[in-house]
């Protein structure tokens, strides 16, 4: 009786977050030991509030410290932990376990189309190379008016707002079947970042970027598969951005 009273007057007991067992099947690859990647499964006790990244942490911290994956901010901004979760490119830190079907095993593997280095880590250099090639920086040779900042109306800013959200996680480019074929295609992310400057009213390098993307490996290789739009963790309308760049190249101006 007395304990009842204590419980009621004390701070409200924290409502327990329900736990469930989930099987994670991770595609492991250690270049020093393995010839081929292999699938390894882990049974974990997880909470409904946990993300795939938390499950990976649990594996790394409690079961097998050799599991290798990238992550920095763990909150969907740095773009380090893009990986293939149940066959779709997602950020591990933005994918809640409860949103997946936890009655089935969850398959986690590295991004496709980029060279596998270890476990969930791929070589991002080919991806950054095509990003660099579109010259993703403001090119303005003229002096700003009155020697102050370059002004832009809210409408002019809104024109490229969507493509400013890119965090270079490579989820889009590595979900693109055209990129998978030979890796020569610029890929959605590079075109998105070109779009961000092509349609920027302050920029003077649009023609240069459009020339680069008018190449054989440029925008014309896009088959509008929409894989990139589906993969983007920031919700960028990637395929639409690519279509707008195509239109701009056909017009010859943004």
């Amino acid at each position: 009786m007395a304990s009842d009273v204590v419980e009621k007057s004390g701070p409200r007991a924290h409502e327990a977050v329900p736990t469930f067992t989930v099987t994670m099947i991770v595609r492991r690859f250690d270049p020093e030991v393995d010839e081929e990647p292999r699938w390894v499964d882990y049974d974990l006790q997880m909470h409904g509030t946990d993300r795939v990244l938390d499950a990976l942490h649990k594996i790394k911290w409690e079961i097998d410290g050799s599991l290798a994956f990238r992550r920095s901010c763990a909150h969907g901004v740095c773009g380090s932990d893009a990986m293939r979760i149940n066959g779709r490119n997602r950020l591990a830190c933005k994918t809640l376990l409860k949103d997946l079907d936890v009655s089935q095993p969850i398959y986690v593997e590295a991004l496709k189309g980029l060279p596998l280095e270890k476990d969930l880590i791929v070589d991002m250099e080919p991806f950054f190379d095509s990003f660099r090639e579109v010259q993703p920086f403001l090119m303005a040779s003229t002096k700003p008016k009155d020697g102050k900042e370059r002004l832009q109306s809210p409408e002019q800013r809104a024109r490229f707002d969507d493509t400013t959200k890119c965090i270079l996680c490579a989820a889009c480019t590595s979900s693109c079947p055209v990129f998978w074929t030979d890796g020569q295609y610029f890929g959605p992310a590079a075109i998105v970042n070109a779009h961000r400057f092509i349609f920027d009213s302050r920029d003077e390098g649009s023609q240069v970027r459009m020339d680069i993307l008018n190449d054989q490996e440029g925008v014309w290789r896009c088959r509008t598969t929409f894989n990139c739009t589906d993969a983007c963790p920031r919700g960028i309308q990637v395929t639409q951005a690519i279509a707008e760049v195509k239109q701009a190249i056909m017009r010859g101006k943004p």
């Binding site: 660099r132 010259q135 920086f137 040779s141 008018n214 190249i249």
Partner: peptide, 18 residues
């Protein structure tokens, strides 16, 4: 000044891909 980054220049002629 615009950086002198290497860039692919479209050679003349018809752009068949487009």
């Amino acid at each position: 000044e615009s950086p002198r980054a290497a860039r692919t220049v479209r050679r003349g002629g018809v752009n068949w891909e487009k």
